[in-house]
């Protein structure tokens, strides 16, 4: 810790950078998953439950198998199952996807708490991090630049999804189904199947986000692990106008803003910390108000989405 002393006020931007990288990953995966699902015309509010179940399943399997990557795989699988279940129920006539989502959220949490009981105490293997700070002598910067492979995967995925929606046949199919069920049927697509698969894929991504929480940061399973991150991530999709690249920026912004409160206290800005803890939410509200416009409301929103219909 030779040169570690006294980075003083530089701790704040460093913490925001580090926080953006460390904290954003679950937001990123859940919001990308939800983005995919909503683009197909469905809302899955259950992703908070999927996130928590993914965190539990990932931790449990990583502990049992001794491999963190098996845990990630199990979390993705569990998430996909939750998504399939949601997608399957929603195909029936008169079923409301928002109500089912809320039910799925509570179901996911309840199951995770039930099955997760024996795994609160044990210590499971962590996901490895890649050091991008080797060029720096500064230990704080090196710590901030310990980047997990899942974060990089998430960034790659955001770019990939953006390209997929814009330039591929699959992307076009999802968009058509999301914008007009009738048009999709007219060209011979099966909207229910597309939505089922989109919801399953979205659930799998949320599951991976959960595995990141329990296997890397903060890196242990307990019942309060998510503290509402899954719900915030669903809201981020609307904030990001259903654009995967914007989801990435929104997740980074949220992660960085969340690090602001602790970081300010650590450099001696000690009063009013409750206010700083509200920073991510204030920021979101501010940006939503700034970005709003009476002429082009909900631009980019899929036409079949039940909140915009």
């Amino acid at each position: 810790m030779s040169s570690s002393a006294d980075i003083g006020i530089w701790g704040v931007p460093l913490a925001i950078l580090g926080g953006a990288i460390r904290v954003s990953t679950p937001f990123l995966f859940v919001s990308l998953g939800e983005c995919l699902t909503e683009r197909s015309g469905r809302i899955n509010l259950g992703l908070e439950g999927t996130l928590i179940f993914g965190a539990m399943a990932g931790y449990a399997i990583a502990y049992e198998s001794g491999s963190a990557w098996f845990g990630v795989l199990a979390a993705a699988l569990a998430g996909a199952l939750f998504g399939l279940f949601h997608g399957w129920i929603c195909r029936f006539k008169g079923v409301n996807d928002i109500a089912i989502g809320i039910a799925m959220m509570l179901l996911g949490m309840g199951l995770a708490f039930f099955f997760g009981k024996p795994y609160i105490q044990p210590v499971a293997p962590d996901l490895p991090a890649i050091s991008f700070g080797w060029w720096s002598e500064n230990p704080q910067l090196r710590a901030a630049l310990q980047i997990n492979a899942l974060f990089l995967l998430g960034v790659g995925l955001a770019i990939f999804l953006h390209w997929m929606f814009r330039a591929t046949r699959i992307g076009l199919t999802i968009r058509v189904v999301g914008d007009s069920t009738d048009a999709a049927r007219a060209i011979g697509l099966n909207p229910n199947r597309v939505r089922l698969l989109s919801t399953a894929a979205g659930g799998a991504l949320a599951g991976i986000g959960g595995a990141y929480l329990s296997l890397y940061y903060p890196g242990s399973w307990n019942e309060g692990i998510s503290s509402g991150q899954g719900l915030m991530a669903v809201a981020l999709v609307i904030f990001a106008r259903w654009n995967p690249i914007y989801c990435l920026w929104a997740a980074l912004l949220f992660g960085g803003a969340g690090a602001l409160g602790p970081a300010l206290q650590s450099v001696g800005v000690t009063s009013g910390y409750y206010l700083f803890f509200a920073a991510p939410y204030v920021l979101t509200l501010g940006l939503l108000i700034l970005a709003s416009s009476p002429d082009k409301a909900l631009e980019g929103a899929p036409g079949e989405l039940s909140i915009t219909k």
């Binding site: 006294d6 460390r22 929480l213 903060p218 991150q229 969340g258 803890f277």
Partner: peptide, 20 residues
């Protein structure tokens, strides 16, 4: 600010470590 907030506790711990 709360009795149990895993992510914030981890951030706080990192901020303390950053300050030496």
């Amino acid at each position: 600010g709360e009795w149990s907030l895993a992510v914030k506790e981890a951030e706080a711990t990192n901020a303390l470590a950053d300050q030496g």
